[in-house]
């Protein structure tokens, strides 16, 4: 039931002309449901790249990702579709988490349409989701530019939760927010984890955030991953 990464390597810019730059090599770790794994390291060491690879947005140069014991590269279409729903990613900048030209309502019902939820069910689930993340229903009628960073980050999490994910890669989810809002988001993440048993991969350069959230912690430095318990 876990999400496993085995011997991942990523090299950028390799092609006919050059060998390219190796970002990291032979990175292996495992994510368990209901647990948080922190990933730290200096800027530019490939934390976000690793996150995107785990979430399946980018392909690694070498190595494999196993989701429920089947490798990502050899998945059938239906299998990949479940993986696509069960593993989600949340990004750093809340201001561009939603399409600036569409109302929040549109962005949210779009996800429910993707899941083939019928109309009445859609309203109920949206309301339920808003209750979970603690926002009033008025936000639905707004455009992203009319909401604060904290509200948007909550909504981003809420939208992800509609897909009922098992793992979420959190790419610096709080570093664009100020301290009090950071705490709210982190508490919300913890609450959601306790309720739904989601596994997090928390990427951050803030040690306090990682310590608050996780038991396991990894350090990505000089292309190697060191794991501390």
């Amino acid at each position: 039931m876990s999400l496993k990464a085995e011997n991942l390597s990523k090299t950028y810019g390799s092609g006919l002309l050059g060998k390219g730059k190796c970002i990291f090599r032979d990175v292996s770790f495992e994510l368990e449901p209901g647990q948080t794994c922190g990933l730290m390291g200096p800027s530019g060491e490939g934390k976000s790249t690793l996150g995107r690879i785990i979430a399946g947005l980018e392909s690694p140069t070498a190595g494999t990702i196993h989701f429920k014991d089947s490798p990502l590269s050899g998945m059938k279409k239906a299998e990949y579709a479940t993986f696509r729903r069960r593993v989600q990613m949340m990004f750093q900048d809340p201001t561009d988490a939603f399409n600036p030209r569409k109302r929040i309502e549109h962005s949210i019902s779009e996800v429910l349409k993707l899941l083939d939820t019928p109309g009445t069910e859609r309203i109920r689930r949206t309301k339920e989701m808003l209750k979970t993340i603690g926002l009033p229903e008025e936000v639905l009628a707004r455009y992203p530019a009319q909401l604060s960073g904290g509200q948007l980050q909550r909504l981003a999490l809420g939208r992800i939760l509609l897909l009922e994910p098992e793992y979420i890669v959190l790419d610096e989810p709080t570093s664009a927010l100020d301290v009090s809002v950071q705490a709210q988001i982190l508490h919300l993440l913890k609450k959601v984890q306790a309720e739904q048993g989601i596994g997090y991969l928390l990427i951050s350069h803030d040690e306090a955030v990682v310590r608050f959230m996780s038991g396991k912690m990894g350090m990505l430095e000089n292309g190697k991953l060191k794991v501390f318990e």
Binding site: A55, G56, L57, A81, R84, R85, V87, Q88, M89, M90, F91, Q92, D93, P94, D96, A97, F98, N99, P100, R101, K102, S107, E110, V111, L114, A156, R159, I160, L163
Partner: peptide
């Protein structure tokens, strides 16, 4: 942008992303 990356992550088709996320912008 975040909204395109998360749309890809949620499994929207490239056509849907191009029409409803990229084109309006």
């Amino acid at each position: 942008a975040g909204y395109v990356k998360s749309a890809r992550c949620m499994g929207f088709s490239p056509f849907h992303i191009m029409v409803s996320d990229i084109f309006p912008n």
